[in-house]
Amino acid sequence: MLSRAAILSVQRPMGAMAARAAATAAGSDRPVRPEHPGKVRLGFIPEEWFQFFYNKTGVTGPYTFGVGLITYLCSKEIYVMEHEYYSGLSLAIMAIVAVKKLGPAAAKWADGEIDRIEAEWKQGREDELKTLQESIEAEKKEQWRAEGSLLLMDAKKENVALQLEAAFRERAMNVYNEVKRRLDYQVECRHIERRLNQKHMVDWIVKNVMASITPQQEKETLNKCIADLSALAARSK
């Protein structure tokens, strides 16, 4: 288990990632960025503060409370209106006018920008997803092709088997021919030997027979032949 993943998992606990995945799957309390901010009144006072008054005092209650509080603070000079107060008042008026005049345009521009940026990021994410999806498809296709190469391998094996068979048969034929040739040679040898023997014996017999014939016998044979010829002549006449 000395893999890189194991080492990395020690350095950087995978628990958080797993938990994140689980939390996303379960749809639990994972924080989500809201679309709109909390509501405010008068530009900055939270809506909840007004709602806190609403059940007890109705709609005008919080305003009454606010005006009353300011009146109290000013009346008792807890809030002292010194020179900075008027400076702040003029600043506040300028700020309110600026917000009223430029606010809508600025909000439109900012909304457009945030939409554009988010669309860009979303586009990038979707492109990445699409690329990965395509690579998965390509990988599957490659696997399918690899299966095809298994088929090709089978065909090649069959082909090799056929070649082996052909080679085996050729060699078997070769052996047969060689053996037959040697046997034929042996047969031929035997024939020649016998023929020579026969010829030699015939010569020997003939020579011996010729040697055994005497002149007397030759003469008798000749006379006999002549007698036979004359007998034949007399009969044919």
Binding site: R33, P37, V40, G43, G103, E118
Partner: peptide, 23 residues
């Protein structure tokens, strides 16, 4: 921050709130 500054279409309210709190 999450309520007023981080939302997608946050307005100018958080700046006024900060100003009021600082004042």
């Amino acid at each position: 921050n999450h309520k007023y500054v981080q939302p997608k279409r946050a307005g100018i309210a958080p700046f006024f709130q900060l100003t009021a709190a600082a004042m």
